[in-house]
Design a protein around this nucleic acid. Sequence first.
DNA 1: CTGAAAGCGCTTACAG
DNA 2: CTGAAAGCGCTTACAG
Lengths: 330, 330
Amino acid sequence: MAKPPATIRDVARHAGLSVASISRVLNGHNHVHPDTRKKVIEAMNALGYIPNAAARSLSTAKSHAIGVVLPDLHGEFFGEVVRGMDKAASERGYLLLLSTMHADSRLAHQAMGTMRGRVDGLIIMAPQLSAEDLAQAIPADLPAVLINSPADATHYNLRIDNRGGVMLMVRHLLAGGRKNIVHLAGYSGNLDAAERADAFREAMQMLAPDLPVRIVEGDFTDASGEQLVQQLLADGTQFDAIFAANDMMALGALQTLRTVGIEVPAKVAVAGFDDVPMARHLGLSTVRVDMAGIGERAVRRLIDQLEGSSEPPALARQSPTLVARASTGR
Amino acid sequence: MAKPPATIRDVARHAGLSVASISRVLNGHNHVHPDTRKKVIEAMNALGYIPNAAARSLSTAKSHAIGVVLPDLHGEFFGEVVRGMDKAASERGYLLLLSTMHADSRLAHQAMGTMRGRVDGLIIMAPQLSAEDLAQAIPADLPAVLINSPADATHYNLRIDNRGGVMLMVRHLLAGGRKNIVHLAGYSGNLDAAERADAFREAMQMLAPDLPVRIVEGDFTDASGEQLVQQLLADGTQFDAIFAANDMMALGALQTLRTVGIEVPAKVAVAGFDDVPMARHLGLSTVRVDMAGIGERAVRRLIDQLEGSSEPPALARQSPTLVARASTGR
DNA sequence: CTGAAAGCGCTTACAG
DNA sequence: CTGAAAGCGCTTACAG
């Protein structure tokens, strides 16, 4: 508010040098005499000089900022993934420009448009967009890395290794002696839900070909988990394990089982996917996805790309881990 | 990657006008002939023109970006508060530059320094910093709005109305006929913990002057909630209600009570503060704070300040609401 | 209502 | 190793 901030010219004047020299030490160039460097640094400190980022960007055509476009993430995930991104970005001297995006693809387009010209690249998480809408929304001239988004031949896409995670849990349930496992799937429009259901089928086929494979579809809410299990009971379906496509549905299942007095894990084992904090609290076995790790990897990869050490686009998978708790055994 | 993006000169050439005219319609200035405006818009569309944000910032000395400095927020809070901020910011045409900050005050300083020159103002949430460290870390020339931070005469500070929230819950517990309420406080270094404990004392004094006031100190973790209640039981303390300073401690309390077979709410009512998702699931009564609302208000207020309609700095409070569930009565 | 031109604060060949 | 100068792409008085 008081005096206008010092510019590079003020520093040059103060140090008795040219602006070019100031710029050189600012950017860590070689070919600067140690004495000169010292004088410059003193002058900068004396004036409390901070380079103007806009001027810098205009000159270099680089913003050193990364745009992050995320959906309306529920629960912890938002915080976790952003934390990972922030870590990776700040380590490499980048700043994060954030925009949450709603399911509407027009808004997605708009969100990315606003960022264009202000960021060097984009990280996009758009599980709810179609491949076409997504392709349309990404500005053609901006490097981008995708997270949990529909396939796309031109961008690096980081996804959860759903197959691996499901395999871990199915193996765990079978090892516990379960014979009749029912999978509560998420709603079919969701990429991860679909992959988990497919993976369940495959895992059963592979690990226990003569056991029955049952899949019923819910919508990722606890209410649907409750309902689905009520339905199974009403139908007289035999089962000794419930493997839900996410923790919320698993919690719903637990709720119903408790209500009707079916012991967990004695009679029925229950497992989820995600490892929300509640899972630990309720002793729910689950599959943990390292969201912070995904955020970190995505940013690292984007920066590598921006700075030239890029490899061809690919589909990478973040491996989940098994978290065994009381709900699947003692 | 292909051709370099169009500049304002390209648009001017394409439209057969001067760059000044392009700029005028871009900025919605009056005194532009409708025909001219039309030509400009056509040219912009034809070239897919997007103004260069850096050049704009350099000219206007405004970035239309807001820096957000948040601590390592646990759980949902991070996502919720950012969502609120993003909403308010995008409504007014601002972008959010995000940086998470760790407890270390040097890092706080650094985080804010990086933002300086790239943002028009700052939103800072620094519950863990001392007033001095905070004052030191905020660049003097940047407008800033504080959230849940130590008092400061020069900035608007938005905090949770802990008194109001505690009052609601104490009134609720008393209305349920509880006579011996024990408050599980958070660790004393925390601002909100201290306010909640004080507020508890005051509320009891005011609403039920002849009932005993008991406060024991924990540290906001569920483990400390478990421990504290075990201790109360071991000491033979009489109580028919536990009001914890946050939900995690309340969950710990529930855990201990269940373990030893004390019925909730028949024998002991349990209440928390925050309304984490788990609270709903476990039927825990609590006090809900609208974090998204806080984020929204903070951003609105900062933008008002940036755009001139500022009022003097003040301490504002976001009112919580009572969420009564099974743990405090039927 | 429109255009020519200066200026915002940097970076970077180009000379020296 | 250092400096003078052009240029990045806008905005905005200043004339007309």
